[in-house]
Write a protein that binds this DNA or RNA. Structure first.
Length: 858
RNA sequence: GGGGCCGUGGCGGAACGGGUAGACGCAGGGGACUUAAAAUCCUCCGCCGGGUCGCACCGGCGUCCCGGUUCGAGUCCGGGCGGCCCCACCA
């Protein structure tokens, strides 16, 4: 192949994609004796065409995977499709096409787009969750978890999406009680459902967060808040003539300030405690609450609203009788559905007490500073910890100590106990929809819910679908599916017609990649030993409390089942920002600002698109699409192209010797690389001087900089910037001697190699061009990452800034080893410095070797 | 209300543990090449003022605002203001 003047990605990219595939360059397991790295990006939901957001995740992950391969690791970089779920079914409702058909089509288009972008996936491991060979293992897990009590059937209030006509998970309810998917209102509905006992893992999931040091803190914080542990106490308030009211509080230290008790409107004791003369009013209130939209009722801005029941309860600590109220702001499903109200020390209680004229009693004083006024003159609740007063035997104790003593006292006396409450709820995963994994249960009139035996899996989702979006679940309308026999007695029975939440599919897919065609178990535990946990997981931060919590839960389950060694699925998480439209708004048909990756590849080639995505900003930041910037990156590649072309005299003339490159620095253990071609002829290189010695320094600094952009925080933008600087430097040089050419050649090899993770096709082409026959048999994708020479990275002369009283007044050139006296002499000789020192007394001189000298004068 | 992140040129963004602010790119100005345009190559580009025929050069200000620590602050501390994200009457 000969090099053309014009950079033409269309002629380059498909050719290298074919070569990589032919060579199996991206197959995991090619270096069995090397250390492994598992690089994973969240698999796509193929609901439409691939969009720019996908382009960004996979470009980030791919750059890393390619780099790690070049560092000598055995890299697993798989891809698959999260194919089951509501959107495909919702689309089917619109145009009547079968979800399977639509999904298959979308997958074909995704796969083609991804290949065109040149992602280094191990395609042999591709999975699709709508494949029975995949979801049968969802069913298998279900059975295992059922047996262990981690799956159970419950009858409870569920979030019912009025749009999707199905139950959705707590985590899928977003802003103002709307569905995360379709934004329809979500209402509460009492319905039987299957649930995972994720709450049994709450403490463990919480503790695990402390070990996830390479996760973004905001994600672990969000999980921590979502799990929502609160340590407190349960206390029983006796109600004469009725069952005691059990309240949950995190501030039992304030209980002597309790002046009333509040029940949630739905609390089971409401009817029982209400005095006959209050009944009408209470019922009217409860009825009104029932009819009010949940968000409106319990939203932050909702005014406090309540009603007195006529009953009184007894505070077990001081024997005081306090009135029992019902109020809108108490949630039936949190804690015990009842609270003790301490208006002096809780803002909500304070507001409520003010509104209804209930007493306010101060029982905590700040440890330092002014004392609080009496309750009736308090401007707002004092909610901090402090020192107890008016609290019987606990008076004088600090809040924390009091809490401990007081909850222990409750336990000793039998009217309460220390308690931990969680915000996290069990994960209800029943879906009354078609396009999901069938739940392997059969209902027998004789034996009730009977699990389908393992050897009868998979329960295959029938091809025939009656999708109306209304009424009964679609599977109920398919008699061939529903009607079956009981696995236990053989009598007529009906299958479960609910399907599993799509988040089940994504909870363990990363493990299926390890042995995607295994038909005896979900995956091979030996392979898991080799590859898990995932080393780097790239995906959007929007999954912080759904997928990312579920998959941590599922991994723990797999750990209990003995399938995996560790309890956390992934070491490092990288959350990438959004690609916005050119106008800075979220890409949307509504704004007409959508930019698709496909047409961009047509116009500029994959390499330019990839460079743009990586250069625009660090991965976590949102970026705006910019046609001008993309043009700029295309120009950069074209510039590199011309440069190589213009300097062919430096490398195309002769075959270089077989000297191999020095090994890559520390990270590359295991199997040695195939012998790498020399960067350049060592003897000639050693002769490089002047501008060309400078070039060599720059080359090695660039290698260092690029390497650093992959280590620690991923900052590809600065790595690419360094490459641009090297290119700019090369433009100014005119090599004349053999040593000059060797230095230029060294820079070219480095440039092509370092470009490989970012713009792999162009890099591959240039690399083969510069190395000629020496590289003919090797792919750059397989070549070693270049080492840098520390001696060349460290400059021998440096520019030292000279300040007078902290203001820059000049700079001097000095050798790196120059001491204070030497630099001072140089500095004082500078005209500007001299002028600023004239007539002043130097009181002090600060000298920072290699950086700066500051004269402090008076 | 709680939690997290963040405020740097016209724009996207650089700046290792406090040490020359603005790397690199985009946009823009000037020049070369060209019959011309595009492309390309070279070059300038924070603000204000002084200086010079034009340069060179010089001074002051400058990383949201106000204070502090320090020889020295984009970076550390305190207090504001503004933006984004998540959670939200969680007892």
């Amino acid at each position: 192949m000969s090099m053309n003047d014009r950079y033409d990605p269309k002629s380059i990219e498909p050719r290298w994609q074919a070569r990589w595939e032919e060579a199996g360059a991206f197959q995991a397991g090619r270096r069995p004796s090397a250390q492994k790295r598992y690089v994973l990006e969240m698999f796509p939901y193929p609901s439409g065409a691939m969009h720019m957001g996908h382009g960004r995740v996979y470009t980030i992950g791919d750059a890393l995977a390619r780099y790690l391969r070049m560092r000598g690791f055995d890299v697993l970089h798989p891809i698959g499709f999260d194919a089951l779920g509501l959107p495909a079914e919702n689309a089917a409702l619109k145009d009547g096409r079968h979800p399977a058909e639509r999904t298959r089509e979308n997958i074909v288009s995704f796969r083609a787009e991804m290949k065109r972008l040149g992602y280094s996936f191990d395609w042999a491991r591709e999975i699709s969750t709508c494949d029975p060979e995949y979801y049968r293992w969802n069913q298998w897990f279900f059975l295992q978890m059922l047996e262990r009590g981690i799956v159970y059937r419950r009858e409870g209030k569920a979030n019912w999406c009025t749009g999707c006509q199905t139950v959705i998970a707590n985590e899928q309810v977003v802003d103002d009680n709307r569905c995360e998917r379709c934004e329809s209102p979500v209402v509460e509905k009492v319905i039987p459902e299957w649930a995972f006992r994720i709450t049994a893992f709450a403490q463990d999931l919480l503790d695990g967060l402390d070990r996830l040091v390479d996760w973004p803190e905001r994600i672990t914080t969000m999980q921590r808040n979502w799990i929502g542990k609160s340590v407190g106490a349960e206390v029983d308030f006796d109600v004469p003539g009725a069952a005691p009211i059990k309240v949950f509080t995190t501030r039992v230290d304030t209980i002597y300030g309790c002046t009333y008790v509040v029940l949630a409107p739905e609390h089971p004791l409401v009817e029982q405690v209400t005095a006959p003369e209050r009944r009408a009013e209470v019922r009217a209130f409860v009825e009104r609450m029932r009819k009010t939209d949940a968000a409106e009722r319990t939203g932050e801005n909702a005014p406090k609203d309540g009603v007195f029941t006529g009953a009184h309860a007894v505070n077990p600590y001081d024997g005081q009788r306090v009135p029992v109220w019902i109020a809108n702001f108490v949630l039936a499903e949190y804690g015990t559905g009842a609270v003790m109200s301490v208006p002096a020390h809780d803002q909500r209680d304070f507001e409520f007490a003010r509104k209804y004229g209930l007493p306010i009693r101060v029982v905590i004083q700040p440890a330092k500073g002014d004392r609080l006024p009496a309750g009736d003159r308090l401007g707002q609740a004092y909610t901090e910890d402090g020192v107890l007063e008016g609290s019987g035997p606990y008076t004088g104790l600090a809040s924390a100590a009091a809490r401990e003593k007081m909850s222990e006292h409750a336990r000793a006396k039998g009217f309460g106990q220390p308690t931990v409450r969680w915000h996290l709820r069990d994960w209800g995963f029943s879906r009354q929809r078609y396009w999901g994994t069938p739940i392997p249960i059969v209902y027998c009139p004789e034996h009730g819910a009977v699990p389908v035996p393992e050897d009868q899996l998979p329960v295959v989702l029938p091809e025939k679908a009656v999708i109306t979006g209304k009424g009964e679940p679609p599977l109920a309308k398919v008699p061939e599916f529903v009607n079956t026999t009981c696995p236990r007695c053989g009598g007529p029975a009906r299958r479960e017609v609910e399907t599993m939440d799509t988040f089940v599919d994504s909870s363990w897919y990363y493990a299926r990649y390890l042995s995607p065609h295994d038909d005896r178990r979900p995956f091979d535990p030996e392979a898991a030993k080799r590859w898990l946990p995932v080393d780097t997981y790239v995906g959007g931060p929007e999954h912080a409390v759904m997928h990312l919590l579920y998959f941590r839960f599922w991994h723990r389950v797999m750990h209990r089942l003995g399938l995996v060694q560790e309890d956390e699925p992934c070491r490092r998480l990288v959350t990438q920002g959004i690609v916005n439209g050119p106008d800075g708004r979220k890409m949307s048909k509504r704004w007409g600002n959508v930019v698709q990756p496909g047409p961009m590849v047509d116009r500029y080639g994959a390499d330019t698109l990839r460079l743009f995505i990586l250069f625009a900003a660090p991965p976590e930041k949102d970026i705006d699409w910019s046609d001008e910037q993309v043009d700029g990156l295309f120009r950069f590649l074209a510039r590199v192209w011309r440069l190589f072309h213009a300097r062919q005299d430096c490398f195309a003339t002769s075959e270089r010797g077989g000297a191999s490159a020095p090994p890559s620095p520390p990270l590359a253990p295991g199997q040695p690389h195939p012998a790498a071609p020399a960067l350049a002829d060592d003897a000639a290189l050693a002769q490089a001087a002047g501008d060309f010695l400078e070039l060599r320094r720059r080359t090695h600094r660039t290698i260092k900089k690029c390497t650093e952009s992959f280590e620690g925080e991923l900052k590809f933008n600065t790595g690419i910037a360094a490459l641009m600087e090297l290119v700019n430097a090369l433009y100014g040089l005119e090599p004349r001697t053999e040593a000059d050419r060797a230095a230029v050649r060294e820079a070219f090899v480095a440039l092509a190699t370092l470009l490989a993770p970012f713009a792999p096709h162009a890099a591959e082409e240039l690399w083969h061009e510069v190395l000629g026959a020496a590289a003919r048999e090797q792919l750059l994708a397989d070549a070693p990452w270049p080492p840098f020479d520390p001696a060349l990275v460290a400059a021998d002369t440096v520019t030292i800034a000279v300040q007078v009283n902290g203001k820059l007044r000049g700079e001097v050139q000095a050798s790196v080893s120059a001491g204070e006296a030497e630099v001072r002499a140089l500095a004082e000789a500078e005209a500007r410095v001299k002028a600023h020192l004239a007539g002043k007394t130097v009181r002090k001189v600060i000298f920072v070797p290699k950086r700066l000298m500051n004269f402090v004068v008076g």
